[in-house]
């Protein structure tokens, strides 16, 4: 009995700490994001957030849906494997609204990005020293970008 009388202040302290813990648990329950932990230790809505990012590259299928002629031409050439936007850049806006006209790429810079000779490039890959190869002439003068190889 005596010990309980002399430990009264400790019981008060324990109650105070207990109240703090309960308050923490109540607040935690109230503000924890909805569904947290459903698929793992994260906010499931974050998945939707990332999936909803805007698209800039329309993708090959979208281009080919409206431009089957180019697709057909390209299919027979060396560049068949390339998607349109690899050279033309991101065109989702154009795919949404054809009135938004894409800017055509600058040919020499575009071609040499891949085909300028570089000692780190794999040997199988066709590459030229532009200055020696064309002497300043635009690549287009001889090669059609959609079907680049002669006699194809």
């Amino acid at each position: 009995m005596r010990i309980w009388k002399d430990a009264g202040h400790l019981i008060r302290l324990a109650l105070l700490l207990g109240m703090l813990v309960v308050a923490f648990l109540v607040i935690r329950r109230a503000v924890i994001p909805e569904g947290f932990g459903r698929y793992g230790h994260f906010r499931p809505a974050a998945l939707e957030d990332v999936r909803a990012h805007p698209i800039h590259f329309a993708g090959r299928a979208a281009c080919e849906a409206c431009h089957p002629d180019v697709m057909e031409l390209k299919q027979k050439g060396k560049h068949a494997g390339l998607s349109c936007e690899a050279c033309h850049g991101p065109l989702a806006k154009h795919a949404e609204d054809p009135e938004v006209k894409p800017v055509l790429p600058k040919v020499v810079a575009l071609c040499s990005r891949c085909h300028e000779a570089n000692s780190a490039r794999p040997k199988w890959f066709p590459q030229v020293n532009t200055k020696e190869h064309s002497g300043g002439e635009s690549c287009e003068a001889c090669h059609k970008p959609h079907k680049p190889k002669f006699g194809e």
Binding site: I3, K5, D6, A7, G8, H9, L10, R12, L16
Partner: peptide
């Protein structure tokens, strides 16, 4: 800071020391 308890009897202080 006393949490409303002013018990500083020797018994209470002994408890404090022990804890």
């Amino acid at each position: 800071m006393t949490l409303g308890s002013d018990n500083i009897s020797p018994g209470a202080l002994r408890v404090d020391d022990r804890v």
